[in-house]
């Protein structure tokens, strides 16, 4: 049984943080209308009785053979590294995951 839910502004702010997406407050109403429109569409699934239905999974006719897990020569290392958003020599450059802000508080905790 589906419990009808809607998304409100508080929840939207949480979701924006989780999805690492920013949104100006002026667009909140439009996005909430759209999200709740989709949720309302899904509320109709309530009428189905799926208590005894298993979750979906694929059947296969013949499993694909797995490739041998062994190192192979590859001459495109440099081309690959060039695709790094920020390259530093032979490495991808990344920011600190744990850092301190101006007040010596942990960021990202």
């Amino acid at each position: 049984m589906i419990k009808k839910m809607i998304m409100d502004e508080t929840r939207l702010k949480e979701v924006l943080e989780l999805s690492k997406i920013g949104l100006p407050e002026t667009e909140f109403k439009e996005v909430l209308d759209r999200v709740n429109g989709v949720l309302r569409m899904c509320d109709e699934m309530q009428e189905l009785n799926f208590a005894n239905t298993r979750s979906f999974e694929w059947n296969i006719k013949k499993a694909c053979p797995r490739r041998v897990d062994s190192p192979k020569k590859w001459d495109k290392r440099d081309a690959f590294l060039n695709q790094a958003p920020v390259r530093d020599g032979d490495f991808f450059r990344v920011p600190r995951i744990i850092a301190l802000d101006e007040d010596n508080e942990l960021i990202g905790d």
Partner: peptide, 9 residues
Amino acid sequence: VPAVKVRQM
């Protein structure tokens, strides 16, 4: 979770 079950139906 219900959607995954409806998919099976």
